[in-house]
Design a protein around this nucleic acid. Structure first.
Lengths: 152, 152
DNA sequence: GGTGAAAACTCGCACTT
DNA sequence: AAGTGCGAGTTTTCACC
């Protein structure tokens, strides 16, 4: 889908606050309510807008402990990779998992209550997945920046 | 704020789709529309719900190239840390930045168009920040999992 | 892309448990 | 303290210009 400058501005606005009314958006974009409405529908249908979500404060739900783990598999056979990715995706503590270049194969982000919960997760969930060679954990001391908004 | 099981279910629903109507939520939670409405307002006012955003597909806006960079500062004096954090936060390509334990000081996630855009970012933006000692880039081969929803 | 109108939703109010 | 039902005012949605 080709995006013009109005679409880009609209995407920026919705990435910041998706609950603002079409009317509020129409004023910011100098368009009619319907024009904005139809642009949004088009962005949704074409898949540019993936979903609308509420972001919650981790601290408010007792999940303040964030850890990044590097993971190396023992081997990179197709079956091992597929199985690891399937198992790790199932884990609710894992917010994200990326297959990356470099010394390790994967980088995952884990969100839990505290160090004890992380130990539980590491011992009982993560390392019980087959074919994991080694892991290396990096504890988050401070979240300096976090955004879901991509610049368009 | 203390969350009961209905609040938790509500948070889970809103983390998945914040645009569903209060009526749809009330049916899923077996409550009246007003009861749901008031629970949501309470979650918003108490700060449990931080914001409502649209998540967009990076590929659709030509930002498919994701890189994680480890960063080490030359020194950890208060001023250096403050300045680095301030500067890195300003960079639009930086989606997240975490102060972490381990061999490196920071882990940042960068989202750009392609390798060339990343080179530009690295040379002209990131490494032009003062006091950076060394960086180590890990290119994302595949995003295995990504979610903004914390399990409550 | 704009207009207008019906359908659906939001949200304050009065009342109940 | 928390839930229900009502209803005026908005907002969404869509056929038509």
């Amino acid at each position: 889908m080709i995006l013009d400058s109005v679409d880009k501005k609209l995407i920026a606005l919705l990435q910041d606050d998706c609950k603002q009314t079409t009317k509020a958006l129409s004023l910011k974009l100098n368009l009619s309510v319907t024009a904005v409405y139809e642009r949004i529908k088009k962005l949704e249908k074409s898949g540019v807008i993936d979903k609308y979500v509420a972001l919650i404060k981790k601290e408010a739900v007792n999940k303040s402990f964030v850890v990044f783990c590097h993971i190396k598999l023992v081997q990179h056979t197709h079956d091992y990779v597929v199985q690891f990715e399937k198992e790790v995706t199932k884990l609710e503590e894992v917010m994200s998992c990326y297959h990356i270049s470099g010394d390790y194969d994967y980088l995952i982000q884990v969100v839990v209550k505290d160090m004890e919960a992380f130990r539980e997760f590491l011992v009982n969930k993560l390392t019980s997945i087959n074919h994991i060679g080694s892991t290396h954990s990096m504890f988050v001391i401070n979240e300096v920046k976090y955004t879901t908004a991509v610049t368009v």
